[in-house]
Deep mutational scan, measured.
Amino acid sequence: MGFKLLSKLLVYLTASIMAIASPLAFSVDSSGEYPTVSEIPVGEVRLYQIADGVWSHIATQSFDGAVYPSNGLIVRDGDELLLIDTAWGAKNTAALLAEIEKQIGLPVTRAVSTHFHDDRVGGVDVLRAAGVATYASPSTRRLAEVEGNEIPTHSLEGLSSSGDAVRFGPVELFYPGAAHSTDNLIVYVPSASVLYGGCAIYELSRTSAGNVADADLAEWPTSIERIQQHYPEAQFVIPGHGLPGGLDLLKHTTNVVKAHTNRSVVE
């Protein structure tokens, strides 16, 4: 069995187990497998329904001669939608809004960016022009300005110390501490036991640490421990890039980060 097929099978099995364990909360999309990078042309966006009122959005972007996937989250909030992270750029984010209108038909009224990198804030200006209120932590807003990236308009308070959590509509926002970046936030959907790890969490097929220019490698494993301790009931975990899975993604990420750190020390 090929690795790609095995990865998709694991996603399907995880979703099936969740649907059985929580039949009222989960209505997993039966329309197909989780979209992969090879299936999404740059400039297009796919939506994948995880649970009743919960979707991931998947886009792709060219970077350094390669094409990478990027995940975000959409959560229903009454007759409105909360968006977590842009679709990595203005063109993708405009396509995301169009796809949401086509498939869901509810307005996106608020959006949260989970850290300051372009795959999370690139497209904020498109959201703002569409009347979406954009939010991020003060740290993310400051770092985005320093980096020359787009800056969300509103500040999220109460997320300055490791372990801080605040309720934001249908989700809980959690600051686990520094990891992929010093400002990275985690998003949890309690009604569906869905954990969105953003770039602080890796997919299972990833074996290298990737972009760690703004990471705190020493603190990252401790931050992941905080996530595990705060959300032990999480059933569906979405990484910032690639295929979702279960809580095993947290341990896998820790292993990859520690291996990278150990290699760096040896070198």
Rank of each mutant, 00 (worst) to 15 (best):
246 G>Y: 09
211 N>W: 12
164 D>W: 13
213 A>I: 07
131 G>A: 09
231 Y>S: 03
51 A>G: 07
225 E>T: 07
79 D>E: 13
240 G>K: 02
206 R>V: 09
46 R>E: 07
244 P>Q: 11
170 P>K: 07
27 S>A: 08
175 Y>D: 02
149 N>F: 11
35 P>F: 12
199 C>V: 00
143 L>H: 12
3 F>P: 03
160 S>I: 15
7 S>C: 08
257 V>H: 14
161 S>W: 13
112 V>H: 03
40 I>H: 10
141 R>Q: 04
39 E>Y: 14
161 S>T: 10
171 V>W: 02
109 T>F: 09
172 E>M: 14
129 A>V: 11
156 L>I: 15
11 V>Q: 06
60 T>P: 06
259 A>N: 08
30 S>D: 15
71 N>F: 00
128 R>S: 10
24 L>I: 13
24 L>R: 06
47 L>D: 02
177 G>S: 03
114 T>Q: 00
193 S>R: 09
19 A>I: 15
128 R>D: 05
199 C>R: 01
200 A>M: 05
231 Y>P: 00
187 V>P: 02
157 E>W: 14
25 A>Q: 06
149 N>R: 08
205 S>G: 10
189 V>K: 00
219 E>N: 08
114 T>D: 00
128 R>E: 05
4 K>Y: 15
158 G>M: 12
79 D>H: 12
87 A>P: 14
94 A>P: 02
26 F>W: 06
75 V>F: 02
47 L>S: 04
206 R>P: 10
83 L>V: 13
255 N>Y: 04
148 G>H: 09
212 V>Y: 10
253 T>M: 01
147 E>F: 15
163 G>K: 14
267 E>G: 11
48 Y>N: 11
134 T>F: 02
17 I>E: 04
11 V>I: 05
38 S>V: 12
3 F>W: 08
47 L>T: 05
96 L>P: 01
229 Q>F: 14
255 N>A: 14
8 K>Q: 07
238 I>C: 10
41 P>L: 10
247 L>M: 14
69 P>L: 06
59 A>N: 05
192 A>P: 14
47 L>A: 08
21 A>S: 09
15 A>Y: 15
91 K>W: 12
146 V>K: 06
100 I>W: 02
196 Y>A: 13
127 L>Q: 03
7 S>R: 07
72 G>T: 00
71 N>Y: 01
67 V>Q: 10
23 P>C: 12
242 G>I: 02
255 N>V: 11
14 T>P: 08
208 S>Q: 11
114 T>P: 00
223 S>I: 10
62 S>M: 04
100 I>T: 10
101 E>W: 15
157 E>Y: 15
162 S>Y: 13
124 V>G: 08
141 R>G: 07
139 S>C: 05
245 G>L: 01
131 G>R: 11
51 A>Y: 15
90 A>R: 13
181 S>W: 02
6 L>I: 05
266 V>C: 03
256 V>W: 04
179 A>R: 02
247 L>F: 04
160 S>D: 06
52 D>T: 11
33 E>N: 12
85 D>F: 00
205 S>R: 09
24 L>K: 05
83 L>D: 02
134 T>G: 02
38 S>A: 10
234 A>C: 04
180 H>V: 00
152 P>D: 03
139 S>F: 01
66 A>W: 06
243 L>H: 12
85 D>I: 00
57 H>K: 01
66 A>D: 06
185 L>Q: 02
171 V>Q: 01
160 S>T: 13
51 A>P: 01
91 K>L: 14
142 R>G: 10
215 A>Q: 12
51 A>F: 07
7 S>F: 04
86 T>Q: 02
154 H>W: 13
14 T>Y: 06
168 F>T: 03
62 S>Y: 09
67 V>K: 05
100 I>D: 01
173 L>Q: 01
260 H>W: 13
231 Y>R: 03
72 G>Q: 00
203 E>Q: 08
154 H>F: 15
33 E>W: 11
52 D>A: 08
41 P>S: 08
100 I>S: 15
5 L>G: 06
166 V>N: 15
267 E>Q: 08
6 L>V: 08
74 I>F: 05
167 R>E: 05
102 K>A: 13
32 G>P: 15
198 G>A: 06
259 A>M: 05
28 V>Q: 10
178 A>S: 13
49 Q>M: 08
237 V>M: 05
221 P>A: 07
216 D>F: 12
238 I>M: 15
75 V>C: 03
173 L>R: 00
16 S>G: 13
40 I>T: 07
266 V>Q: 14
243 L>K: 05
252 H>C: 02
48 Y>C: 12
135 Y>L: 07
180 H>Q: 02
168 F>E: 02
57 H>L: 02
104 I>F: 04
106 L>M: 14
137 S>D: 03
99 E>Y: 13
30 S>A: 11
78 G>E: 09
1 M>N: 03
178 A>R: 10
191 S>E: 13
228 Q>T: 05
87 A>I: 00
44 E>P: 04
151 I>W: 07
236 F>P: 03
245 G>H: 14
236 F>T: 14
136 A>Y: 01
158 G>H: 15
20 I>Y: 11
45 V>E: 02
225 E>R: 12
166 V>H: 14
40 I>K: 08
115 H>Q: 00
136 A>T: 04
129 A>P: 04
221 P>R: 12
173 L>H: 03
151 I>E: 06
144 A>S: 08
152 P>N: 04
51 A>W: 08
48 Y>Q: 09
132 V>E: 01
65 G>C: 03
253 T>L: 00
207 T>K: 09
5 L>W: 12
178 A>K: 12
195 L>D: 01
156 L>Q: 12
172 E>T: 15
126 V>Q: 14
65 G>Q: 04
195 L>Q: 00
265 V>C: 06
214 D>F: 06
35 P>W: 11
260 H>M: 05
170 P>G: 12
183 D>L: 00
21 A>C: 09
264 S>W: 15
144 A>Y: 03
103 Q>A: 07
157 E>L: 15
39 E>P: 05
206 R>F: 10
218 A>G: 10
222 T>E: 10
174 F>H: 15
114 T>G: 01
186 I>Y: 03
46 R>H: 04
118 D>N: 05
80 E>M: 14
148 G>K: 15
1 M>E: 04
25 A>M: 08
128 R>H: 11
69 P>M: 11
1 M>Q: 03
220 W>F: 06
160 S>W: 13
252 H>S: 13
188 Y>V: 13
134 T>L: 04
206 R>E: 15
242 G>Y: 02
112 V>W: 04
58 I>H: 05
75 V>Q: 02
253 T>Y: 01
46 R>C: 07
202 Y>R: 10
225 E>G: 10
260 H>E: 09
217 L>W: 08
266 V>K: 14
206 R>M: 10
17 I>R: 04
104 I>N: 01
215 A>H: 10
85 D>A: 00
112 V>P: 02
206 R>W: 12
198 G>F: 01
148 G>V: 10
137 S>R: 12
144 A>M: 07
124 V>E: 08
41 P>C: 14
38 S>W: 12
225 E>I: 07
181 S>A: 12
252 H>Y: 12
236 F>L: 05
121 V>A: 03
10 L>V: 09
23 P>A: 09
202 Y>C: 06
72 G>R: 00
181 S>I: 00
137 S>T: 06
123 G>F: 00
113 S>P: 03
78 G>A: 06
208 S>G: 11
122 G>V: 07
84 I>P: 01
254 T>R: 11
250 L>P: 02
107 P>Q: 09
43 G>R: 12
116 F>G: 07
122 G>A: 06
121 V>P: 03
113 S>C: 06
250 L>W: 01
86 T>L: 02
6 L>F: 08
195 L>R: 00
189 V>Y: 14
139 S>L: 10
148 G>E: 05
117 H>M: 00
227 I>R: 01
77 D>E: 06
48 Y>W: 06
264 S>E: 07
249 L>Y: 03
47 L>M: 08
86 T>V: 15
176 P>H: 02
96 L>W: 01
130 A>T: 05
161 S>P: 10
19 A>V: 07
245 G>A: 07
4 K>T: 13
77 D>N: 04
93 T>R: 00
29 D>V: 11
209 A>Q: 15
90 A>F: 15
159 L>G: 02
175 Y>V: 10
198 G>H: 02
143 L>F: 15
243 L>P: 04
267 E>R: 10
159 L>W: 04
85 D>H: 02
256 V>F: 05
11 V>T: 06
200 A>K: 03
197 G>P: 15
126 V>P: 03
185 L>C: 02
55 W>K: 00
219 E>M: 07
177 G>V: 01
155 S>R: 08
15 A>T: 04
200 A>N: 00
150 E>C: 02
43 G>D: 06
92 N>C: 03
215 A>Y: 14
222 T>P: 11
213 A>V: 12
254 T>C: 08
